[in-house]
């Protein structure tokens, strides 16, 4: 690396943002709007009494709770966002090294003094570090507005609303947990990231079909020849909710420095190196 600077790398990240703003901002924003509108419509169907009961329920649940101990509830409330983030990231990674080959603009990118390794790293940093910011921002706006709405309605019903203040601080404080949960989850799934990038760099068309097809073919081959299920078992344990869902900082740091994480990072890095190599003479 001769003179690769922060300034250059920032430009690569900006480029990813310009290209994928629909996946990065559009998807969580639309989800937030949909959830808000649905909740609003449901709320408008309820009688004043029912609404009051609901607000009272929320309020009393959060009332007096230490916001640091409510992360699991907040993460549960964020689940739709996490699912959308997962699928958007899969699409992003499958297109990352594919779409510019398809429209031939790769010849322009390759004519710039940026190496393939730098390009691929910018895409991984995007999915681990940058994109989650927008998802967390959408969550913040949604819950900010929702709690604001409940507060206004509750105030109109002359209710005691200190619980909502607790709920607000729970959301605000736990947004960082949500952010680090997403970031470490992507690292935890780095083998999947690498797998998707390999087929993004390799396929001439339909990278998703390749990524899924080769996985099942390998699993089938393993079962047929060795009569084992190592590959599918290993993939399943990565997605096992017991391993996957984490609700506090100590859980996040435990996972980050675990042996399983290390193995995943190694496997992921090998696959990612493969995608960098394939990109060298990509057409």
């Amino acid at each position: 690396m001769s003179r690769f600077s922060f300034f250059q790398f920032f430009a690569l990240l900006k480029k990813e943002f310009w290209e994928n703003r629909i996946l990065m901002i559009g998807a969580p924003a639309v989800l937030a709007v949909v959830i808000f509108v649905v909740n609003f419509l449901v709320a408008s169907q309820l009688s004043e009494e029912q609404l009051g009961t609901l607000i009272g329920y929320f309020s009393s649940w959060f009332d007096g709770q230490n916001p640091f101990y409510t992360a699991s509830v907040i993460i549960l409330l964020c689940l739709p966002f996490l699912v959308v983030y997962f699928f958007c990231s899969v699409i992003y990674l499958l297109n990352a090294l594919y779409s510019d080959r398809k429209d031939m603009s790769i010849l322009f990118w390759q004519s710039m003094p940026i190496s393939n390794l730098q390009t691929v790293i910018s895409k991984i940093v995007t999915v681990v570090v940058i994109s989650p910011i927008f998802t967390v921002a959408a969550i913040a706006v949604l819950y900010g507005l929702s709690i604001g709405y409940l507060t206004i309605v509750g105030y109109g019903l002359s209710m005691q609303l200190s619980g909502l203040a607790y709920m607000f601080s729970a959301v605000a404080i736990n947004l960082s947990v949500v952010y680090f949960f997403i970031a470490t989850s992507v690292l935890w799934l780095l083998p999947l990231v690498g797998w998707l990038l390999v087929f993004s760099a390799f396929s001439r068309r339909a990278p998703m079909l390749w990524a899924i097809g080769v996985y099942f073919l390998l699993g089938f081959f393993e079962g047929f020849v060795f009569n084992t299920r190592f590959l599918s078992n290993w993939a399943q344990t990565r997605f096992d909710p017991d391993n996957f869902i984490i609700v506090d900082y100590s859980g996040i740091s435990d996972r980050l420095f675990s042996y399983d994480m290390f193995i995943g990072l190694v496997v992921g890095s090998i696959l990612i190196s493969g995608s960098v190599y394939m990109r060298r003479y990509a057409e």
Binding site: D103, S111, P113
Partner: peptide, 16 residues
Amino acid sequence: MEDVCFIADVGILPKW
């Protein structure tokens, strides 16, 4: 590529 520039025949600039 710091010393060489290249315009490809079909090397269109990225449309987006």
